[in-house]
């Protein structure tokens, strides 16, 4: 159920791991008393780090943790494009498609990954290993074409580098 669904608010809050809760307390504590809402983006990143995406149940729990209304969490989570509001694969490949990367071959890179994984942009492989997304400028313009996965920047990509990268990700996600 999406955050804009009328019954979203009824989705039961889910619990996070103890480690995530500890880290949430730390980032909330960075802001003055009463300004805990300022930590919302940090908290949503932590949610996504644990779950892979941001579900309505997770958002409802975030609302309790920050002591704000659920709608305040939905409106933020739906505004910022880093948050995945649907389940995704184990590795989300976010390829930069903006001008400077396009000048050095991002169109070809996207096509190559589509063929290699046999999916289109926005889709997830059947084994749940990869989701392919395109994103706007990631601030790596001098090192394109590039993509981001799990906050790591893979830069100056070639077909060979993509092959190696995908193999390494498959290997790492097995365990």
């Amino acid at each position: 159920m999406k955050a804009d669904h009328p019954q979203a608010v009824n989705e039961a809050p889910i619990d996070f791991s103890a480690a995530t809760m500890t880290e949430m307390k730390r980032v909330i504590g960075l802001f003055p008393e009463g300004k805990q809402k300022s930590a919302i983006l940090s908290v949503l990143h932590l949610v996504q780090d644990e779950l892979g995406w941001v579900s309505v149940g997770a958002m409802n729990r975030v609302a309790q943790i920050l002591d704000i209304e659920p709608i305040e969490v939905y409106e933020v989570a739906t505004f910022y494009t880093m948050f995945h509001l649907d389940p995704v694969g184990k590795n989300v490949l976010e390829v930069c498609r903006t001008g400077p990367c396009q000048l050095v071959g991002s169109d070809d890179l996207i096509t190559y990954i589509e063929q290699k994984l046999d999916i289109k942009v926005g889709e997830t492989t059947k084994d749940g290993m990869f989701t392919l997304k395109t994103v706007e400028c990631l601030g790596a313009c001098g090192y394109g074409p590039m993509l981001m996965c799990k906050y790591h920047f893979y830069e100056r990509l070639t077909k060979e580098k993509v092959n190696e990268m995908l193999d390494a990700m498959r290997e790492a996600s097995k365990s």
Binding site: V27, L30, F31, S38, A39, L41, S42, L44, H45, V76, F79, Y80, T81, M82, F83, V135, E136, C137
Partner: peptide, 10 residues
């Protein structure tokens, strides 16, 4: 001094 992240919005 505190450093805090955005969420992907130009």
């Amino acid at each position: 001094l505190v450093v805090t992240p955005g969420g992907g919005a130009y």
